[in-house]
């Protein structure tokens, strides 16, 4: 992948909100890089500081310390005028869409163009073209109130694209949408990323969003960067508690596995092993079996990944036989209770 040019460089960025009698550290010494053309996910529980972090990327929030470098420019050193000019290269979409309810779909998409003084005819033409990209060319004269949530977010995406931005920041852009619509919006974003080579930064609390379209992910916990890496690596071998918290529930879902059961293990298959009948081979080779509590395979960055929560036999000898079998085929089961307390 030719995505080595760095578009965002964050060096020891911190944000502290102070008032008379309290101090909240929203972002705590985060350093990371975002590459041009990639889809970068920032995931964390609500209140983890990810929304503050993304607002520092277009200077809606000032950093308390550290620096945010966008395309070689330190955002903190820009004049108000330069800041506004830079923001025109950094589009943003929001959880609540933030469309103007009193303007038509077309007029909403025209706004960023109006701000830079594009003529009326040209504005309409560009707006129509962008609405076509998001599949809403037949809704130009509708008002936002007449649209569904998914359609509103499409309008917001068209409005963002009207600026011809270098980066698209998505602040919980799918959190107000149902799973099916979320899926559609994510596909649209992925499509835009590929077609326009637009860098996309996605803020979310939903692991499935990251899994579906992100190349790399930063896990933010309590304002700190808990983990950073390729999505497939983080997903396969989460190191931090925060990562495990976020990843495990998506596998376990609402499966009734007993979290206090010492025999519960999580096994992760890499792309190769997922195609093998691992459990069937276990039975064939060792005569022992495991109880599958939860299983899930998904495509992450184009490679199939599988995860299972299994219950090993209680008998210590059989338990060891099963453990050895998995180790021998290159899978390291991790005991659930050791891994995370949900």
């Amino acid at each position: 992948m030719a995505e080595q040019k760095i578009i965002y460089q964050l060096n020891h960025v911190s944000k502290i909100f102070r008032d008379k009698n309290s101090e909240v550290i929203a972002v705590d010494d985060i350093s990371l890089e975002i590459h041009e053309g990639e889809i970068f996910g920032i995931i964390g529980m609500s209140g983890a500081g990810k929304s503050t972090l993304v607002r520092m990327l277009n200077r809606l929030e000032e950093v308390t310390s550290g620096e945010v470098i966008f395309d070689g420019k330190k955002l903190g050193e820009l004049s108000p005028k330069e800041t506004r000019a830079t923001r025109k290269q950094i589009a943003m979409i929001f959880q609540s869409f933030n469309l103007l309810s009193q303007k038509t779909v077309l007029a909403n998409v025209e706004i960023p163009l109006k701000l830079i003084g594009v003529s009326k005819e040209e504005r309409k033409e560009i707006a129509r073209e962008k609405l076509k990209i998001v599949g809403l060319e037949d809704k130009v004269n509708a008002y936002p109130a007449q649209l569904s949530g998914g359609q509103k977010q499409r309008v917001a995406i068209a409005r963002a694209l009207a600026m011809n931005p270098r980066v698209l920041l998505c602040d919980e852009a799918t959190s107000a949408l149902d799973p099916k619509i979320t899926e559609e919006i994510l596909s649209l974003l992925q499509d835009i990323n590929e077609r326009l080579n637009l860098t996309i930064v996605i803020i979310t609390h939903e692991m499935n969003v990251v899994e579906k379209i992100c190349n790399r992910v930063a896990i933010v916990d309590n304002g700190k960067l808990a983990e950073l890496g390729e999505v497939k690596d983080v997903f396969a071998k989460p190191q931090s508690d925060a990562a495990k918290h976020l990843i495990l529930p998506t596998i376990a879902g609402d499966n009734p596995f007993d979290e206090t059961n010492k025999n519960c293990y999580r096994i992760v298959f890499n792309g190769r092993a997922a195609t093998e009948p691992v459990i069937a081979n276990l039975v064939k080779r060792t005569g022992e079996s495991v109880n599958i509590l939860s299983a899930n395979t998904r495509s992450i960055g184009g490679i199939g990944y599988g995860q299972m929560i299994v219950e090993f036999p209680e008998d210590p000898t059989a338990h060891k036989v099963v453990l050895d079998y998995f180790t021998s085929i290159g899978i390291q089961p991790v005991a659930i209770d050791k891994e995370v307390v949900i």
């Binding site: 923001r87 025109k88 929001f94 933030n98 103007l100 309810s101 009193q102 706004i111 600026m163 920041l169």
Partner: peptide, 28 residues
């Protein structure tokens, strides 16, 4: 305020925020 925030994110200046965003929204 989220409307103002959206306006800011598009690089609008204070005058534009009032003229293009807040007043049209408040018209009714």
């Amino acid at each position: 305020y989220r409307i103002t925030e959206a306006a800011k994110s598009m690089g609008a200046n204070s005058w534009q925020i009032v003229k293009e965003f807040i007043i049209p929204e408040a018209m009714p």
